[in-house]
Computed example of a mutant assay.
Amino acid sequence: MKGKVTEIGINKKVVPARIREARVSRGYSLADLSELLGVTSQAISQYELGNSAPSMVVLMKMVDILRFPLNFFLKPKENINPNYVDSAVYFRSMKSTPKKLKEAYKYRVHWADEIHHYLKKYIDFPPIDIPQFDDFNEIDFVLIEELALKLRSYWGIPKVPIDNMVELLQDKGFIICRLVLGNKKVDAFSQYYNNVPYIILGSDKSAVRSRFDLAHELGHLILHSHIDQESIVKKEILDKIEDEADCFAGAFLLPSNSFSQEVMSTSLEHFVFLKRRWKVSISAMIKRCERLNLLTDSQIRYLNAQMTKKQYWRNEPLDDAIAFEQPYLFKQAFELLIDNDIVTSDEILNELGYNKEEIDSLCFIPKDLLERKRKTKKLTLKHDTN
């Protein structure tokens, strides 16, 4: 019967959409999971459509194989606002990213949104503060330079290096997560989801390259929210928007009205000095100089040759010296709830329905944070014993 679901005690039912979510997020095809569960692909498809229900034995196998708590499969998908149109998911290095991997990682945005939705019941997060620029259909590099400067002006950023990109964007309502992506084909990705801008960063890059990833994803969210998911997979469109996002990142981090005045030498030592000040990689600064015509073609070739000679393309000076900028909003929110005895860590885990390691990773929180137990109140002696 259509819509049939497995009963788990009183008023507890498996949510069919959660079965597909668990499977896809782990990178399994129907055939993959079929082999692991010992049921047919058609049976799993019917579970996901809600046309039939897995037995308790099969369900418990799913819990074990897909590494989700039982409560995850019982959790309704209830925080989707039909009035919001979600943007495409923008993957850095998307050209070489396998489709199965992209589909798996997309759910990390959904999970971040569910965690955000849960925490908002108790915590006031910074409001979203992104300017509405005039509609633009044709994007060129002149427009990108203009928009980057306008955004800096709107946010009150002076003509100096941005000290902390994570802090800046979180203060403007962005939700930033950092994951050990474990795959060199994915650097970062972003999406407007439920009208909230989400950026997921990898944890395996230098601090300056991670800052550039943040600015790149900001560029996508500012410039490309009108592009749908079907269009973004077309090579000519993908190549174009990736170049535009890179251009925006350079213009935002290294504004033309100030950075250009500081480029006074073609020595790599000078660019190391600029890297310490602007917290942008030498390779990105060379590209920016080329874009702004600050150096001649021969000077650019010389710098690129020096980068190759010194093997700086992968590991630059100061890569280990400049500190990572870590997301902290979710960490602060969980600490407020637990330290003030609003909810316990066990209640948080039960309500969210993800395994603890998943939450630790996605929210970039210490491993012991969701292990904290409510302090037992000690008995005290009465002052008056008469």
Rank of each mutant, 00 (worst) to 15 (best):
M1R: 11
I8T: 07
G9L: 01
V14E: 08
V15T: 03
A17C: 03
A22I: 01
R26Q: 14
L30F: 11
S34W: 02
I44G: 04
S45Y: 04
L49Q: 13
A53H: 04
L66G: 01
L66W: 08
L74W: 00
P76S: 08
K77Y: 10
K77N: 11
Y84D: 01
S87V: 05
V89R: 09
R92Y: 06
K99V: 15
K100D: 08
Y105H: 10
Y107F: 15
V109I: 15
A112Q: 08
H116F: 15
K120H: 07
D124I: 12
D124M: 10
I130V: 15
I139V: 15
I139W: 12
D140R: 14
D140Q: 13
F141R: 15
E145F: 10
L147C: 06
S153Q: 13
V160I: 10
D163F: 09
N164D: 14
Q170D: 04
D171H: 13
K172D: 11
C177I: 14
R178I: 03
R178F: 00
V180N: 15
V186A: 07
A188G: 03
A188C: 02
S190Q: 14
Q191L: 09
Y192S: 01
Y198K: 08
D204Q: 09
S206D: 00
R209W: 03
R211Q: 12
R211V: 02
F212K: 14
A215Q: 07
I222Y: 05
L223A: 03
I232P: 07
I232D: 04
L238F: 00
A245W: 09
S258P: 05
F259I: 01
S265P: 10
S265C: 06
S267D: 09
F271Y: 11
V272T: 10
V272H: 12
F273C: 04
L274W: 05
K275W: 07
R277K: 15
S281K: 07
A284R: 11
M285V: 04
R288A: 02
L292Q: 09
L295G: 09
I300Y: 06
L303P: 02
E316H: 12
E316P: 04
L318R: 09
E325G: 13
F330G: 01
K331H: 14
F334P: 13
L336Q: 15
L337N: 06
I338H: 07
D339Y: 05
V343A: 11
T344A: 00
N350G: 13
E351F: 12
E357L: 01
E357A: 12
E358A: 06
D360F: 14
L362D: 08
F364P: 03
K367R: 07
D368K: 09
K375G: 00
K375M: 08
K377H: 12
K378L: 12
N386K: 10
